[in-house]
Amino acid sequence: MTNRDFWRGFARNKGAVLGLLLLLAVMALAAFADILFPGDPWEMATAPFQPPLSGDALLGSDMLGRDIAAGIAHGARVSLVIGLISTAVALLIGVTLGAVAGFHGGWVDDAVMRFTELFQTIPNFVLAVVLVAIFTPSLTTIVIAIAVVSWPPLARLARAEFLSLRSREFVQAAVTTGQSNLTIILRQILPNSLSPIIVSASLMVATAILLESSLSFLGLGDPNAMSWGYMVGAARTMIRQAWWMSFFPGIAIVLTVLSLNLVGEGLNDALNPKLARSRG
């Protein structure tokens, strides 16, 4: 597939284009947070309990006089970084296990799939909470916890792809022409299984961001990093007096997650054009 075909497929989905623009905006916000809102977002910037559009706080201030808008800008970093890194780790675990299971088949496949099933049965958010609580919250433990609970779907997907490609005739032809297993995995199978994996990975970034925000909401975020979930959680009990303190960070999460989901669908349409067309 050429680049042009890809972009044409992607742009046919209007939602995906909107999502991409949104995502770029969030990324810009994260990148320029220090310029837009210099200084520490944890510091008091104005009087406490300022409603939106009052004085120098565009989106209001919280109970300690911290600027909500500054918190959102700095929180964008944490969300995106954790979303991306934990997805990368989950990809590494999931695709490796799935590839081994799907390629090798037999008892290896069985064993890996039982293991995956086990992790899928465990209520993943509870496990993430337990892991982060026990190993004390920090960026590292949060990333690891999210990755540990998120890899099973990727493993299943990679396995299904490998399993079906493994029995395809072009792979068997590679076997009969004497290519090594590693060559077959890397050159014949992997490139053909990438599209669905890329699509799921993009959707998984969104899920990871939701997970991170949920952990922070419960007070299990990195205590040194301002994050959206923490802002909503801290303002939870003030909702009657100051709705804006939890409203705006929540909107930030919704928009970011929405943009990633839209981009993921666009990728799906662009990478699997036949499917997209048949879905009308």
Partner: peptide, 9 residues
């Protein structure tokens, strides 16, 4: 795309 705790709030 909405975190459930925020929907709840």
């Amino acid at each position: 795309a909405t975190p459930i705790y925020w929907t709840g709030l």
